[in-house]
Design a protein around this nucleic acid. Structure first.
Length: 114
DNA sequence: TTAGTGACCAACT
DNA sequence: AAGTTGGCCACTA
């Protein structure tokens, strides 16, 4: 039985699986949980992740590796600092070496099923 | 229920 | 090549 916030739970589950020092994109997560056109809503779900512990929301960026959601963090550069503390280089809100550290759940994780 | 919003994405000019 | 527009769909009021 699926609750209305089941979508959020799926998002959180995937985000928690992101390995240390890697990043992924909203679209990739949306696709993995079976809602390929709901990338926007994935970001919306991240907004609620502040209530949840152990959600590395800083590891989720847009498809260009740009930190579009950094304004939703407390500090001006908190998101960047969190990423840098994991060994990810960030310059001007842009993840450097993005293609190398990019982690796609569709490739690295087993197919999602309930 | 209808309408408005957004941490995106792809297509179009 | 760079900027704008529209669609997408879950959530809130």
């Amino acid at each position: 039985m699926k609750s209305s916030s089941d979508f959020y739970k799926r998002v959180f589950i995937v985000v928690k699986q992101i390995p240390h020092g890697r990043v992924t994109s909203y679209g990739a997560i949306a696709r993995y949980i079976g809602a390929p056109r709901s990338s926007r809503t994935v970001g919306y779900a991240m907004n609620a992740s502040h209530n949840m512990p152990d959600i590395p929301s800083q590891r989720v960026v847009n498809r260009n590796g740009l930190l579009t959601g950094k304004h939703h963090f407390q500090g001006t550069h908190l998101m960047q600092q969190l990423l840098e503390s994991e060994g990810i280089e960030v310059i001007e809100d842009q993840v450097q070496n993005f293609q190398e550290i990019y982690w796609d759940p569709n490739l690295e994780l087993p197919v999602f099923k309930d």
